[in-house]
């Protein structure tokens, strides 16, 4: 968990710093300096257009994290209320409609539809966010519903109903705080999946468009150079792996730390 938190913090920090400062402007191409090895000026070398790899990676972190974070946001903002409503209405028609809708979205191979959405509405970071975010909705709806259902059978919910509280208020006051742990853990998982999906989309050219740097497109560019400059294919991939790894470790750690069952064992 500690390693996960550190890795996540490093990349989040790199992304944040890149908003105000990167070592070298990523929009300036210096063909003369192309595919340089590591040096003091360029600690990670330069790419085939002579851009500083460290700056590219930092700016790429910004793109990846922003896209994945907003996509998770879409999932939480739309999915959680749907899941809570379904649980409050368990067995009723609303529950049925919401869950069938969920199943329908799950029936689509997610990346295929993400490709379609970005293809139809044109490739851009915003469309990548939407495409990934849509598939987060049923995930969060399911987790919220699954977490809420057993709570609804508990006596304290009954007590709240006897105290005259309606389903919306009970969901907000009792259910949501008690499933927050589940949602936080799921958010880290979806966040890491979002990073992978964003990388895949920009790798096939359907993510953020040039000149915005992104890890996926850096890899796509590197592939064309794979015989000439294979080293370019390494760093962006490592960045993706470390970010995703960090988030997953963080998620596992949070799950263990927040799981009341595990906590009770520790006494």
């Amino acid at each position: 968990m500690r390693l996960g938190a550190v890795l996540t913090a490093v990349f989040a920090l790199a992304a944040l710093i890149s908003v105000v400062w990167v070592p070298h402007d990523t929009a300036v191409l210096t063909i003369a300096d192309r595919t340089l090895g590591p040096s003091v000026a360029h600690p990670f070398g330069t790419d085939h257009f002579g851009r500083d790899m460290l700056s590219m990676l930092m700016a790429g972190a910004r793109t990846s994290i922003a896209v994945a974070l907003l996509a998770v946001g879409i999932g939480i903002v739309l999915g959680v209320p749907l899941g809570l409503a379904a649980a409050a209405n368990r067995g009723g028609w609303l529950d049925e409609v919401i869950m069938r809708g969920n199943d329908l979205i799950f029936a689509f191979p997610s990346l295929v539809i993400a490709i379609l959405i970005t293809a139809v509405f044109g490739p851009s970071a915003v469309n990548a966010i939407l495409a990934i975010g849509i598939f987060n909705i049923p995930v969060f709806a399911r987790v919220a519903r699954g977490g809420a259902l057993p709570l609804w059978t508990l006596d304290y919910i009954m007590a709240a109903r006897v105290a005259g509280k309606g389903p919306a208020r009970i969901s907000a006051e009792h259910i949501l705080p008690n499933i927050a742990n589940l949602l936080i853990v799921q958010a880290t998982i979806q966040f890491s999946l979002g990073i992978l999906a964003e990388a895949a989309l920009s790798y096939v050219g359907l993510g953020a468009q040039p000149p915005t740097p992104s890890w996926g497109r850096m890899l796509a560019d590197a592939q064309t150079m794979i015989h000439v400059a294979p080293q370019l294919a390494i760093l962006p991939g490592v960045a993706i792996v470390l970010t995703v790894l960090g988030l997953n470790l963080l998620g596992d750690g949070l799950r263990d730390a927040l799981d009341p069952r595990l906590r009770r064992v520790r006494g």
Binding site: D155, Y156, A159, E173, H174, N178
Partner: peptide
């Protein structure tokens, strides 16, 4: 009219 339930553990929101 009010009520007391059986389960001393499930009767309260733990938070």
């Amino acid at each position: 009219i009010s009520v007391v339930f059986q389960d001393p553990y499930g009767s309260f929101d733990p938070r």
